[in-house]
Amino acid sequence: MSDDLCVEVPVAAAFRIRWAGAQWEADAAMALRRAVFCHEQGIFNGDDRDQVDDTAQLLVAVKCEAGAPEMVVGTVRIHQTEPGVWFGSRLAVHTAYRSHGKIGATLIKLAVSSANGLGCTRFLAHVQSQNVPLFRRLHWNVLAEETLLGRPHHLMQADLDHYPACLTPRVGLSTLGRSGT
């Protein structure tokens, strides 16, 4: 873990959103997904991992304190299903950081922008209905309403014109905010 990943921010916390690079980040992201999708929402029994995880790129939102990475507070994964077509899935933010308001949005921004930097021509996601307003604010359009895993979802597509290509996803993006709990 290098000190140049995060900057010290007085009174507020710094969050670095980037592609997961360290094993501890991947482990923490998977634990966060289990907490959200298995325990909190009860969508999966025990674990939410599937075959997509074998090829997906994992993104993390890491809370930084005193300039050092401290904990993963958000995650999402992206994967290409055919040349140019990418999907985002398993967006999860720790309960203590959901009111921050920028973590989920910044994860979405980096997910689409980094895929765009890899030649994405279409970026899609199956979005839980309660999250549709957030995605609409971020320039996504509803293509269809669906039921997945027994819950209402919307198949949505990002407007790539609002997501310039990110060619440095391992460095990622930063956002500031309240430190949470």
Rank of each mutant, 00 (worst) to 15 (best):
A31Q: 11
A35K: 08
R18M: 01
G88V: 03
P10Q: 04
L58I: 05
W19Q: 09
T121M: 08
G180Q: 07
A68W: 11
F135N: 11
F37G: 01
H139I: 12
A158R: 02
Q57Y: 10
R151G: 07
A66L: 15
T55N: 13
L155P: 00
D161V: 09
W24D: 04
L134I: 13
V85T: 13
V52G: 05
P164A: 00
R77D: 09
G21N: 01
A144G: 10
V142H: 07
N116K: 09
A158W: 07
A35R: 10
V73W: 02
H162N: 10
T81N: 08
G172V: 02
A12P: 01
L124A: 13
T106S: 11
C38V: 08
G180M: 03
P169L: 05
L143R: 12
A56K: 04
H139M: 00
F123Y: 15
V52K: 02
E145I: 02
E70T: 15
S89Y: 00
A26P: 03
P69T: 05
P152D: 15
V171H: 14
D48S: 13
A144Y: 04
G74N: 10
R18Q: 05
V85R: 10
C166Q: 15
G150W: 05
A105L: 03
G21V: 00
A158G: 06
Q41M: 13
D159L: 00
I78L: 11
G46P: 04
H79C: 11
V72M: 01
Q130R: 14
A26W: 01
I103H: 06
V52M: 11
A111C: 13
L138S: 14
A66N: 14
F87W: 14
A14P: 02
A165E: 15
T147S: 13
S113N: 12
A35E: 13
V62A: 04
Q157R: 12
G172K: 06
R34S: 09
T55K: 10
P69K: 03
R170H: 11
L167C: 08
V9R: 03
A68S: 06
F15R: 00
N131G: 04
A61F: 05
F44H: 14
W140Y: 08
V171F: 12
E146P: 03
C166D: 15
S99I: 00
G74D: 10
V171P: 01
R18C: 12
E65Y: 08
L167H: 10
T121R: 15
R16A: 11
Q51Y: 00
I103C: 06
W19I: 02
V73M: 01
R151K: 12
P10N: 04
M156W: 09
R170C: 15
V72E: 09
L148M: 11
S114K: 10
L124K: 08
A66H: 14
V142R: 04
F37T: 03
